[in-house]
């Protein structure tokens, strides 16, 4: 019998040498795409989070490399087109991407190089999961991890439509959707995500959400003491908070970090589409179908009558207008 792993509290520890059992599994799923009334697990796992301190990032992309290595993806080799992003965007083979912005701070006239590690935010209220039509293609565990289950994915792209952060990417090879898994397979055996493990400056740290919030506080305090008075934590309430959070030096302007949304939430259009449209739509279709069937079965129907047939004969065979001769057919 192997030891059971513990919920990880850091990404820096090295794995044990003996094999370990996963500490969470399908029994800890709290939400399943296209599935109503998911039975709730009787235990609540410790909420986890990854904290990305943008002010500490040096843009080395070790995290990207670690992601590619751990997940065994093979991003295409692209052309250098004179930008720092590489590849050009998130792809089905690149779950995380360093996005670079050159921002001129109007208060100081300084040019600031803002580097944000983009990727799935692991929303507490995930829009991707809400939009997905395929039962079981997206699941959420009680520790906050939102995971895509490839076998159930049909490649429709609805998750892209639902995500407030424009994260999922559909492969043109196998027509499945891909995004960051928060290294659920590593976390399950007590390890932190590969990116956090690889980050040379510890701009990425990992642990319980409570620990990460507390750690963020110390970082924000430090930034404020160094003149970044708007430093703050990005843990947007509109999506119920996220399990990937940022420390931003300019938390009042998330948009300057390559369009990080200011108040992300599941779009009201998506809510309306997946909500009232479905309920009302199915109700009217059902009513119309049942009503038409019942009425069709029990009503007499509009039958052609004998005088119609006679009238047609008068008109066509005798070449006379039946209406002008009341004795020969025509409406009585």
């Amino acid at each position: 019998m192997n030891d059971m792993a513990n919920s990880p509290t850091t990404a820096v520890s090295n794995p044990p040498v003996q094999p370990t059992e996963a500490y969470f599994n399908a029994g800890d799923i709290v939400r399943i795409s296209a599935t109503r009334n998911v039975p709730q697990p009787d235990r609540q796992l410790e909420k986890l989070a990854k904290l990305i301190d943008v002010s500490k990032c040096i843009g080395c992309k070790a995290c990207q490399s670690a992601c590619v290595e751990w997940n065994d993806t093979h991003p295409e080799i692209e052309e250098n087109v004179g930008v720092y992003e590489n590849p050009h965007d998130l792809t089905p083979n690149m779950f995380t991407l360093m996005r670079f912005a050159e921002w001129e701070n109007p208060a100081t006239n300084d040019l600031e190089w803002l580097i944000r590690k983009d990727g799935c935010m692991h929303c507490e209220d995930p829009g991707c999961l809400k939009a997905c039509p395929a039962p079981g293609a997206i699941v959420q565990y009680s520790n906050g991890i939102v995971d895509f289950v490839k076998d159930n994915c049909i490649g429709c792209g609805y998750c892209v439509t639902g995500c407030p952060f424009d994260i999922p990417r559909i492969s043109q090879v196998d027509h499945k959707s891909y995004k960051c898994t928060l290294c659920s397979d590593r976390v399950a055996v007590g390890q932190g995500p590969a990116c956090a493990k690889a980050c040379p400056t510890q701009a990425i740290v990992f642990g319980t959400k409570a620990d990460m919030q507390a750690h963020a506080e110390t970082r924000i305090e430090d930034l404020k003491s160094r003149g970044y008075e708007n430093a703050g934590l990005y843990d947007p309430a509109g999506v119920g908070g996220t399990h990937v959070m940022y420390v931003l030096h300019h938390a009042d302007k998330p948009g300057i970090y390559n369009e990080l949304p200011e108040n992300p939430r599941i779009s009201p259009i998506v809510e309306g589409w997946k909500g009232v449209t479905k309920t009302a739509g199915l109700a009217v279709i059902g009513l119309a179908a049942v009503g038409a069937t019942l009425h069709g079965l029990f009503s007499r129907g509009n039958e052609v009558e004998e005088h119609d047939t006679e009238a047609a004969k008068t008109l066509v065979v005798e070449g006379r207008d039946p209406d002008e001769d009341p004795h020969k057919g025509g409406p009585a």
Binding site: Y158, T161, I269, G272, W273, T277, K278, G281, V284, I285, A288, A289, A292, H295, G296, S299, G301, N302, E303, V304
Partner: peptide, 26 residues
């Protein structure tokens, strides 16, 4: 996608009406 879903509901209703009328009018 919202427009598509709404239009789909509408066309299914029109379809039901069409079939019903074709059968009712013997």
């Amino acid at each position: 996608v919202l427009v598509h879903a709404l239009a789909a509901v509408a066309i299914i209703l029109v379809f039901i009406m069409h079939v019903y009328a074709a059968i009712w009018t013997r």
